[in-house]
C-alpha cells in the first residue's frame, strides 16, 4: 500500500533533550516517591495500631460500665417518683451503650490526632 504519511512520520525526530539527564530526573522522583510511600505505610501501620487500642479501650470500658450498672441497680422508684426518673430507668441500657460509644469515639479521635502529629 502506498502510504504517503509514512515518510512524514519517519522523518519525525524532534529533539528531546538529554536522555541521561531525563533518566536522572526520573530516578530522583522515584526516590522521592519511594520515601513518600514508606511514610504513608508507616502512617497506615500507626493508624491500625491506634485503631486496635481504641477498640480494646472501648471494649474494656464497656465491660466495666456494664458490670457497674448490673451491680448497682437503681433503687426502685417510689410511687411518687417523677416521670423523668422512670424514663431514665427505662432508657438505662441505651444510655450505657451511648456512653461506651462516646468513649470509643473519643479514644479513636485522640488516636487519629496522634497519627496526625506523627505526620
Amino acid at each position: 500500500m502506498n502510504d504517503d504519511l509514512k515518510p512524514l512520520f519517519d522523518s519525525y525526530r524532534p529533539e528531546l533533550g538529554d536522555a541521561d539527564e531525563y533518566t536522572e530526573r526520573l530516578q530522583r522522583k522515584m526516590e522521592a516517591l519511594r520515601w513518600m510511600k514508606q511514610q504513608a505505610d508507616e502512617q497506615r501501620r500507626l493508624f491500625r495500631r491506634w485503631l486496635v487500642v481504641a477498640f480494646a479501650t472501648g471494649a474494656v470500658l464497656g465491660a466495666v460500665a456494664l458490670a457497674y450498672t448490673l451491680m448497682h441497680p437503681l433503687p426502685h422508684p417510689a410511687p411518687d417518683a417523677s416521670r423523668l426518673l422512670l424514663v431514665l430507668q427505662q432508657l438505662r441500657p441505651a444510655l450505657v451503650a451511648l456512653a461506651v460509644a462516646g468513649l470509643s469515639a473519643l479514644t479513636a479521635h485522640l488516636a487519629t490526632g496522634s497519627g496526625r502529629v506523627a505526620e
Binding site: 525526530r13 528531546l16 536522555a19 531525563y22 530516578q27 519511594r34
Partner: peptide, 22 residues
C-alpha cells in the same frame, strides 16, 4: 526492581516522549 525499571525506561523513554509530544 528499580534498576530493571530504569533500564527499560532508558530504552523506551525516547519513544514515549516522542509519542506524547505528538
Amino acid at each position: 526492581t528499580p534498576e530493571r525499571f530504569v533500564e527499560l525506561v532508558k530504552e523506551e523513554q525516547e519513544v514515549l516522549r516522542r509519542f506524547l509530544l505528538a
